[in-house]
Design a protein around this nucleic acid. Structure first.
Lengths: 342, 342
DNA sequence: TTGAAAGCGCTAACAC
DNA sequence: GTGTTAGCGCTTTCAA
């Protein structure tokens, strides 16, 4: 074992050790026919002995119909159960197809998103699944072009036509607000994130529309947008409850908004006086005090659906882009079933 | 725009369009000196026009001191807040170093872990951070060898000497159990996962030791191992509470075990009679009923620490492997401060 | 059944 | 300042 270099061994090293040509080694590695059993075994022994591992990059470079069997997933942050489950779903389907998933976080920043797209595209991934940041995506799409398959998830990107997997925002917000109206509420607060995100403005629009349909005039004082973390959510709830004519119910249109709301309601001792409906499950919705009523989404299913769509594209199905809309459904647990008390 | 092929454009295409040699294009791309400003601008225009993107794989292949500026992160599943935060921490440090992180899930399965290591190694990542599955890692380490930097996180892998970042399991379990003993409990249940995982057996060992030191003989009926999801946790808690001489307190040594425990205690109406201390925070520990007392870990810090260590290795620091042990600290919130009631 | 030679897209060394 | 050449590790002709 003298002279064991730290250099990775190559096809040549294996060939030399097995006393064959590099082409023969290549044949064995790729399971091509026309190799004598003895030769093949010698080659395998040499591979084993040298801990040889093919260089995937070099192989792809040489191969004609390039395919790296990898896809990139861009999400705002993995550190949110919703996106973590999307990741999980994407990974499931990718593995079924023999692909690996490279995930990275954009922090909902368009510049970061673009830079990651460049990095992954330059690494020759076969496709993208992107939960887009707010902002005009025309540049991004022009760059990805028609040759790089791409499916957007959660948010509908601004300015472009592309495959999108998202929840039925209008229906979800309508059902949540209607639920609260049923319990007598008229002062219903709305908590949403960045108003440039499609989910945020669609949910708010539906919230307002549902109120109007019930004869309630929307009040902008009751609308808190731009919530991006639980601290922001807590501040927003305090404002909603501190109004001269305060909110008696809240629709928190993001999971983290709901978490902040629960926290403040507990602190203020209003958990059983102010009704709350969240959007999207959290791991322990049922264990909170009070148990959290939500419009449940299926992020695992989103991820799977987006991945399936992406593989259709990768396999060459060249239909026109579609928006796949998944339903959300109401899960009543207590926090949302609080009657208006005057 | 006639004849726009779907083939990706290459250095040659850019060179032809800008009417220079490929080397000049290469210079512009890599910001090398000795290019006339006008030439450089022509090249940049051509790049823009063709949507040219360098092929990172080919560039790395040609480059002498190969570095792909990427690291691989292998975790059991991203779909667990603990590992999601580790991911986040790793990503932070990697980005600070200009590296990208490729993450994948092992499902705590050694074969999957090994196969992912092959895939990533063959893609020439510069290093690994691995939360290892149970099982002998000698094969894995022999394969990675000394030339591929690798840091283990959370679990200490069996059978090998390597850099590890983990929590002080002995101290954490001791403090949790001592806390419960202080409140008069003698029948303290232990919930842990796969007994082959270092965190699980170390915590159990410390749990038993702490009991003995307090004059309590450990009872194997009170030890529930192999818990890997909340359903398993719920079944385990039911058994602990169904014993002839049932547990009056529980140390749930994993976050998901604690979630299952809270659920069952709520269902059985025992939330305020059975004391519970969890291990590791969950997003909303403070909002549960009752609020969850935990031995808090710092998974974000774990991730950062592991990444920092990995970059030391990548930068060539060749010290002997070390185990970095981070402390956990008790956060009392209510669930663990319940006096023994006879 | 096997091997030699060309070339994938790029960088490195050295010319001019 | 700029271009030419060789070659990274592999696959693909095509010949033996």
């Amino acid at each position: 074992m003298i002279g064991e270099q730290s250099r990775r061994s190559t096809l040549h090293d294996v060939a030399r050790l097995a006393d064959v040509s590099i082409k023969t080694v290549s044949r064995v590695i790729n399971g091509e026919p026309n190799v004598a059993p003895t030769t093949a075994q010698n080659v395998r022994d040499a591979i084993e002995m040298l801990h040889y591992l093919p260089d995937a990059a070099a192989a792809n470079l040489a191969r004609t119909g390039r395919e790296t069997r990898s896809i990139a997933l861009l999400i705002p942050t993995v550190d949110n159960q919703f996106f973590a489950r999307i990741f999980h779903g994407v990974e499931q389907v990718a593995h079924e197809h023999g692909f690996v998933v490279f995930a990275a976080s954009t922090d909902l920043d368009l510049a970061t998103e673009e830079s990651l797209i460049r990095i992954f595209a330059s690494r020759q991934v076969d496709g993208f699944i992107i939960a887009p940041a707010p902002g005009d995506h025309r540049g991004v799409m022009a760059f990805l072009g028609t040759r790089m398959p791409c499916v957007f998830i959660d948010q509908t990107p601004a300015g472009v036509v592309a495959d999108v997997v998202t929840v039925d925002n209008a229906a979800a917000a309508r059902e949540a607000v209607t639920h609260l109206l049923h319990f007598g509420h008229r002062r219903i607060g709305f908590m949403g994130d960045d108003a440039n995100l499609s989910t945020a403005y669609q949910r708010r629009a539906s919230y307002e529309e549902t109120l109007r349909a019930a004869g309630v005039v929307p009040d902008s004082d009751l609308e808190e947008m731009g919530i991006c973390d639980t601290e922001g959510a807590e501040a927003a709830v305090r404002r909603l409850l501190g109004l001269t004519d305060p909110a008696t119910a809240i629709f928190a249109s993001r999971n983290m908004a709901a978490i902040g709301a629960v926290r403040v309601l507990q602190q203020m001792g209003l958990s059983h006086r102010v009704a709350l409906v969240g959007m999207g499950e959290i791991d322990v919705s049922d264990l909170l005090e009070p148990p959290l009523t939500v419009m449940a989404q299926d992020p695992l299913g989103f991820g799977r659906l987006a991945a399936q769509r992406l593989f259709e594209r990768i396999d060459g199905h060249d239909e026109t882009p579609r928006t796949l809309i998944a339903p959300a459904h109401l899960v009543t647990r207590g926090s949302g079933e609080i009657l208006l008390s005057r």
